[in-house]
């Protein structure tokens, strides 16, 4: 933690790019340190994700034949639900006791704060995913270890987290904060979920790359477009 604080104070006079990256790193480090001490966010995301899978198990009767077709859908719905929980919490702790105001006072570019939050949210989401995937393989005896799947999950998670971080920064500042994020987020990230589910199905069924290439392209396009939109508009969301 001491290192992280030091990194922030050194930002500015030194090289612009190095300072920027250190500011981003400091925010990520702050989130990791806070999480290591409180263990609030990852724990609840994981338990919630397991509960969602459990509910799907009974709602869909995940027998051998159903599993072939619905695995990717179940996984992405689980990630999306657990993701909103994490995003909400991650921004709520910033809003709590004026932490965000403190961050905004730091002499760094606002986009560095945004990237820091995106990276830490992405990290938490990936941690949850790396625990859920082997667990799902174990529970349902489906082989989910495939290099293509990592790319799909990474691309899908980036798009989800980029839009989610921007919208959660707005949602926590509203009166109806707890219920607002999924309502704001889900219609916007629908293309991510559609593309990620289709691409995941393609990978898991061992189809050739050409068969799901279009979905990967869509994911990449979505990530790039919304990264641009989010960087430009984040300034307006946090300014006070």
């Amino acid at each position: 933690m001491a290192e992280g604080v030091g990194a922030v104070s050194r930002v500015g006079p030194r090289g612009a790019v190095g300072g920027y990256l250190r500011a981003v790193g400091a925010i990520v480090w702050k989130d990791i340190a806070a999480e290591l001490r409180s263990r609030e966010l990852l724990g609840s995301m994981l338990v919630f994700a397991l509960l969602v899978i459990l509910i799907f198990n009974f709602a869909l009767e995940l027998d051998l034949r159903t599993r072939q077709t619905v695995t990717s859908g179940v996984l992405w719905v689980t990630f999306a639900f657990a993701g909103t929980l994490g995003l909400n919490r991650s921004m709520a702790i910033e809003k709590d006791r004026g932490c965000l105001d403190g961050l905004l006072l730091a002499p760094v570019d606002r986009s560095a704060i945004f990237f820091g939050k995106v990276l830490s949210n992405l990290l938490f989401m990936i941690i949850v995913e790396t625990i859920i995937l082997p667990l799902y393989s174990l529970l349902y005896n489906v082989n989910l270890f495939h290099p293509g799947l990592i790319a799909v999950i990474l691309l899908g998670s980036i798009g989800y987290v980029v839009v989610g971080t921007l919208l959660s920064a707005m949602a926590v500042q509203a009166r109806t904060r707890d219920i607002l994020l999924p309502i704001l987020l889900f219609p916007v990230v629908l293309p991510v979920l559609v593309a990620a589910v289709r691409a995941t199905t393609g990978v898991l069924q061992g189809l050739p790359l050409e068969d799901y290439q279009a979905w990967l392209n869509l994911l990449i396009a979505y990530d790039v477009i919304f990264l641009g939109v989010a960087i430009v508009s984040f300034d307006y969301v946090v300014e006070e």
Partner: peptide, 17 residues
């Protein structure tokens, strides 16, 4: 401000959807 940002984000997302 939030309305403006969400109005833009939503409009960008429609063609992709």
């Amino acid at each position: 401000r939030f309305g403006s940002v969400y109005g833009i984000v939503a409009f960008v997302s429609v063609p992709i959807t």
